[in-house]
């Protein structure tokens, strides 16, 4: 039985420091309160003859002092907590993207290279990992205590989370938002491996065609190629080099074409129409499932590389 939680991600170091700081403040205040209660209980018990001295001292000075003291300490804790939290929102650009689809009582994980896992996540050490997560039914929560991260996984939209593992080993993966009967079985292992082991794992675990390659097949099968690869009768925006670039929209604003924008345009094309184009694209909402969608997004992502590459 161990009483401390080993840290396995460099991004978690700050959180550990914060937890220690909070513990220190709490123990200090607790110690003060318990000590004072103990002293008063013994010294001023009913029949003790000790002199009570001047009773009616002005309480104003004490009140202001401890109110200001608590306000200052609390404000400091707030600043410290939120600066670390904001960093969780900024995944580095070069992070390795892994797609996670949560389903009632299992985690389906898909790597860029096409490898698929259930309730297990194999990742290389010392590289920033960005998880792009969505759920197919209720709200789940991807929680890895060793990395000090967790994020609710909402159905119908992408949630992102990133960390940089820095210790090789196997760590717990929990679902920490109650999601029904087998909520406690929706657990798994996060395996952090060295770069060579990770490369070896990638090839041996049935990589086969990469996500992007599979996406290219779907791009043709669902008829996207008809309009978006040009040459067709319909005028549609070209997708080459789209990923990551700003897109001028018909209502004057511009949107950055990231994963969410692409997914949103496939599922609800009329909500953000590209400037100078007609909103004629049909919605594929119930045509394309979650898994195929991930491949299509990966393929469009690879089109951008083609242009820069």
């Amino acid at each position: 039985m161990r009483l401390t939680l080993p840290l396995a991600a460099s991004t978690g170091a700050q959180t550990d420091l914060l937890l220690l700081g909070l513990l220190a403040v709490s123990l200090a205040v607790l110690g003060l309160v318990f000590w004072l209660m103990l002293v008063y209980a013994i010294r001023y018990r009913h029949n003790s003859p000790v002199d009570r001295g001047a009773l009616a001292e002005k309480s104003f000075r004490f009140e202001i002092s401890w109110t200001v003291a608590t306000l200052v300490i609390f404000f400091g804790l707030f600043i410290w907590g939120s600066t670390i939290y904001v960093r969780l929102y900024q995944p580095p650009a070069n992070a390795l993207k892994v797609y996670v689809v949560a389903k009632q009582w299992m985690w389906k994980i898909e790597h860029a290279g096409g490898q698929r896992e259930i309730n297990a996540l194999h990742i290389p050490v010392d590289t920033p990992i960005e998880l792009i997560m969505t759920s197919e039914d209720v709200i789940h929560d991807f929680f890895v205590p060793a990395f000090r991260v967790k994020r609710d996984v909402l159905p119908g939209q992408y949630e992102t989370m990133w960390f940089r593992p820095d210790r090789i080993g196997t760590y717990h993966l929990f679902c920490s938002q109650f999601c029904g009967t087998a909520h406690s079985n929706m657990i798994g292992d996060v395996v952090v491996m060295s770069a060579q082991d990770y490369a070896g794992w990638l090839t041996t675990s049935g990589g086969g065609k990469t996500l992007a390659a599979q996406g290219k097949g779907l791009f043709i099968r669902y008829g996207c190629a008809g309009c978006h690869l040009g040459g067709g009768t319909v005028r549609a925006p070209s997708l080459v080099g789209l990923y990551g670039s700003p897109v001028p929209l018909s209502d004057g604003s511009t949107a950055i074409a990231d994963d969410r924008y692409i997914r949103d345009s496939i599922m609800q094309p009329k909500s953000q129409v590209v400037a100078s184009y007609e909103p004629i694209m049909p919605s594929f909402a119930n045509v394309i499932g979650e898994d195929d969608l991930v491949r299509l997004v990966a393929y469009i992502h690879s089109l951008a590389a083609e242009k820069h590459g």
Binding site: G12, Q14, T15, L18, L19, L22, V25, S26, V29, L30, V33, F34, M37, A41, F74, L77, F78, W80, G81, S82, I84, Y85, L88, D141, F143, P145, R148, V149, K150, S176, Q177
Partner: peptide, 29 residues
């Protein structure tokens, strides 16, 4: 007396959960 001790401990652990980064680790545990 029991109330003061336990309520203070409860209140202080509330500070843990109000700090954003600590809540990311401790939420729903």
């Amino acid at each position: 007396f029991g109330f003061i001790g336990l309520f203070t401990m409860g209140g202080l652990t509330g500070l843990f959960l109000a700090a954003l980064a600590a809540d990311v680790e401790l939420h729903d545990t």
